[in-house]
Nucleic acid binder design. Sequence first.
RNA 1: GUGGGUGUAGCUCAGCGGUCAGAGCACUGGGCUGUGGCCCCAGGUGUCGAGGGUUCAAAUCCCUCCACCCACCCCA
Length: 425
Amino acid sequence: MIQRVRGFRDILPPDINRWQYVENTARNILENYGFREVRLPILERTELFLRSIGETTDIVEKEMYSFIDKDKSPVTLRPEATAGVVRAFIQHGLYNQIWAKKLYTIGPMFRRERPQRGRYRQFWQINAEIIGYGGPLADAEIISALDMILKALKIKGYEIQLNSLGCKGCRPYFKEALMDYLSNKVEGLCPDCRRRQKLNPLRVFDCKVEGCRKIILDAPRIIDYLCPDCQRHFIEVQDYLRQMGIEFKMNPYLVRGLDYYTRTTFEVIAPGIGAQNAIAGGGRYDELIKELGGRPTPAIGFAIGIDRLLSLLPDIEENRRPLLFLALLDDEGVKIGLNWARKLRQKGIWVEMGYNRSSLKSQMNKANKLNARFVLIIGEEERKKGRAILRNMDTKVQVDVPISPDEGIPSFLSQIKNKEETWSS
RNA sequence: GUGGGUGUAGCUCAGCGGUCAGAGCACUGGGCUGUGGCCCCAGGUGUCGAGGGUUCAAAUCCCUCCACCCACCCCA
């Protein structure tokens, strides 16, 4: 048997209900916030991710699905969405398009990690970006949209963690201070962090090793190094969030795994879904568009992990049911039934039938398994009388209706209507 | 990349050196010759994850590999 590639998943009914529910909910909310959907390539040039995410991040160092295309160019399955959005934004010169200020996209991302609960090599994200606005109101709106989606989905117990990473003006001072501090503590650091200390000292904050954590506790904090502008920005973001009643928790150690973030960063964690408990994350990236060759343009975005979100949602019960199942007992019956089916479906009604000739018993059985509300029986006897048998599967009540679709369908539909009135009263 | 756990029917699992590989659910047919759910009966359920080894004898013991799950690293 040919097996699925490791870490990839098949999404099948009845699970698909939950996927559609989450996507539809997010879509509706984002559209109300004025976001427009974009659909972008899954494959991008590797360089895009090297330059955006950062060469010394875990994603780039060990998690990318990269390969050499037939024309020898290095390409990579996107490990996150923002880089592609920015690339498209620059490529199409969208700086002044009113619809390009707020964009969202839903689709799969790829990271080649060891799979575990809540972590897959292909995972799905809902991404939203506000582009071209550097002020704190954009931050507040993006977090507000994220929070509204989580609330609409009735996610319980999630926590929004907030931090600021400063800007290109103030972050270097902090980086230096941190590097100085860490260089005196090298003995206590794990091998990974010794390397990080030189290359990308902020990443030490993410370390879970006991020794490193202790060192981190006394380390300089980013928020103490913010320049006045960054400070003001961050305070205003918090004010807006409080204004809207959005709860959040400050986390001065939140640095995020991508190098392009500036100022506001956030992450949403949720309990009860295993070790991989981050269901969403994001932040501001005011330098990225310029760094990728575009005009200087501030932006902020978030990503929601659909796979992880779904593990927090209860099963959605299957309440779809066909209105009518056609039990067709002979060749002539099939011909009549085909017309019933076509005409009813044109009216938007779900009609089922058996595709192999079998006994009435087995057709009834199938109707029952499909949970059809009505069965219309058309056989030799019915044709002789010119009247088909209509059985209500819930009440077991059977009545006759004209067998010809032109007369029978109106009769059928009026009966349904009456039934619904009596049921609802 | 590292560690631990698990691989037997479509699903959930039992068997853990000694005839034949089993149960429940699901599936198909019949009891009911043209009427579903309940009940009864019958039936396919399978390279016992793959390959090799030990043994008179391997689903069972050993080795290797593979897959899945969980955890570490890190993140969605």
